[in-house]
Design a protein around this nucleic acid. Structure first.
Lengths: 127, 127
DNA sequence: GGCTCATTTCGACAGCCGTGGAAATAAATC
DNA sequence: GATTTATTTCCACGGCTGTCGAAATGAGCC
């Protein structure tokens, strides 16, 4: 049996756009909300209400997310319905895993397995 | 048998910092280079040479990466040696997978399995 | 101590970002 | 067509970002 795995590898420029889109408080919240909402998405107003953002500000952020390929829009009556694009998110994770997690050898397999403790938030970054 | 999986979950603020740190051309390049270099890291000058960046500019970016917890520094003679922090990267991927990839149900399992094609870079984001 | 090499800090600058008020557009409802 | 509702576009503003020249720091070497 043959698998069609015709999946375009994400270009670095796309990755940068997606990262920049998610690297903002309100946008990350927005995207997470859409993710939880699933593929049917949510009307803009509902997101605005949930996050307590003025509609024009939110519109600005939606535009960023859309240009980064992280959400889709469709119109339903007078509402604009935004939905997360899981394919892009998956591609982003793929890129990060492949390019930013594997020295030789892969250092980003599931962490728990080895029983090694992972201490985070060492802001100084001094070893 | 008992596993010690004592791993601090990344806070949203840490996630934002890491995303912002990676969402920049030169910094993403820098980090990828360090990842490929593995846990021994690379002296700053070597990175500067590889990427063709003036040393002060690179220093600026290293600082961002360090504050985001994505790299460590140690001094060796007169060189500063930077190394990628795989634990942070792993935590970031964990956060993104959990918070930005699972609607109900998880939509970010490995893509190829279903044979579904994944078309990317639809900049318009119109379905 | 003086000299050189590696890197960081300082200071300045143009440009992008996030925000929100006000006006414009788009669609339903009467 | 007029009104209401949902959302976007326009505009302006303060603040942060990325860059780089110039000076400062730090470490090895003679």
């Amino acid at each position: 049996m043959i698998h069609f795995d015709i999946r375009r590898i994400m270009e670095k420029t796309d990755v940068l756009a997606a990262l920049a889109a998610l690297a903002q408080d309100n946008r990350l919240d927005t995207f997470r909300l859409l993710v939880r909402a699933g593929p049917d998405g949510l009307p803009a107003g509902q997101v605005a209400a949930a996050l307590g953002l003025p509609p024009n500000t939110l519109s600005f952020h939606f535009d960023r997310l859309r240009q980064a390929g992280l959400v889709t829009v469709r119109r339903a009556g007078r509402s604009m319905i935004y939905a997360a694009r899981f394919d892009t998110m998956r591609a982003l994770l793929g890129y990060l895993t492949e390019n930013c997690c594997e020295g030789p050898p892969n250092r980003c397999g599931p962490a728990g397995k080895t029983g090694r403790a992972v201490i985070l938030s060492n802001k100084d970054g001094v070893a």
